[in-house]
Design a binder for these strands. Structure first.
Ligand SMILES: [Zn+2]
Ligand SMILES: [Zn+2]
Ligand SMILES: [Zn+2]
Ligand SMILES: [Zn+2]
Lengths: 133, 133
DNA sequence: GTAGTAGTGTTATAATATAACATAATTTTT
DNA sequence: AAAAATTATGTTATATTATAACACTACTAC
């Protein structure tokens, strides 16, 4: 069985549950302060849960923001091939599900003909909601 | 005149000079400890120089590594449209100069038809040098 | 039921980045 | 050339993000 389909531990469930409640990406220390009532007391407990959730494809890290967001694609096949659009007004991050772009990047070869194991793509702009205001 | 073509300040020159001496991306505090003999004493001086060098297209940040690397393309036209391949064995980061991919991403529209102002793409894999070993 | 693996709890600390304030240098405007 | 505006510098302190290390527990596989 794939690692990503294994069941979640207690702390992993608590952390994932909080992340899923938020539309926007959340910071690790925000997770910590919000789950302390559930018995998670210290940063390593959060970061360990995050590491596993990322491995399992349940959560992605938004690298340019050091924040974490739940996968909206009902389980990313490839946790290390992610595409986001990020609004620099409101910090919202939307996972982009575009098969053509996905394939384009998965098959991309560099000048030496090498293919890559994964990628992370972050687009920046103003989201539709912020454009209206 | 474009901001990126403006001349560099004293601290910006010192920081850029050190980054350019390194093939691999360097960390901010590594920059700091290496330029202290040049009179740069504290983190804000390094981070401020980095911010300006990034604006001017001389330096890019490798987001997944919190490190900084000199632009190899003799001045990136678009400092906020960068493509890297990163080796997870040796941490080397190479800027990819692929016009087709560049255009593909610049013109990419999301499901709502919106185009973006910029992007950052990081490919992950084993570099050719590490593959041989 | 023992061995191996994955998870937890805890303390301390490392690594990355910015706030805030005072001053100086440079550029632009008048 | 003087005043105003902008950009850069120097400095101290602190905020934010992330991991090391160690003791212990729970789960899984054979
Ligand atoms: Zn996903
Ligand atoms: Zn927005
Ligand atoms: Zn460049
Ligand atoms: Zn390598």
């Amino acid at each position: 069985m794939d690692n990503k389909n294994k069941s979640l531990s207690k702390n992993q469930k608590i952390v994932l549950d909080f992340i899923q409640k938020n539309k926007k990406p959340v910071k690790a220390y925000s997770i910590l302060s919000n789950v302390q009532k559930k018995g998670i007391n210290a940063p390593p407990q959060v970061y360990r849960a995050l590491d596993k959730l990322i491995e399992k494809g349940k959560v992605h890290k938004v690298e340019s923001q050091n924040s974490f967001v739940a996968c909206k694609m009902a389980n990313c096949d490839t946790p290390h091939a992610t595409i986001f659009s990020i609004c620099y007004e409101c910090d919202n991050a939307s996972e982009i599900n575009d098969t053509k772009l996905f394939n384009y990047l998965s098959e991309f070869k560099d000048s030496s003909g090498s293919i890559f194991d994964g990628y992370n793509l972050e687009f920046f702009g103003t989201c539709n909601s912020c454009k209206k205001n």
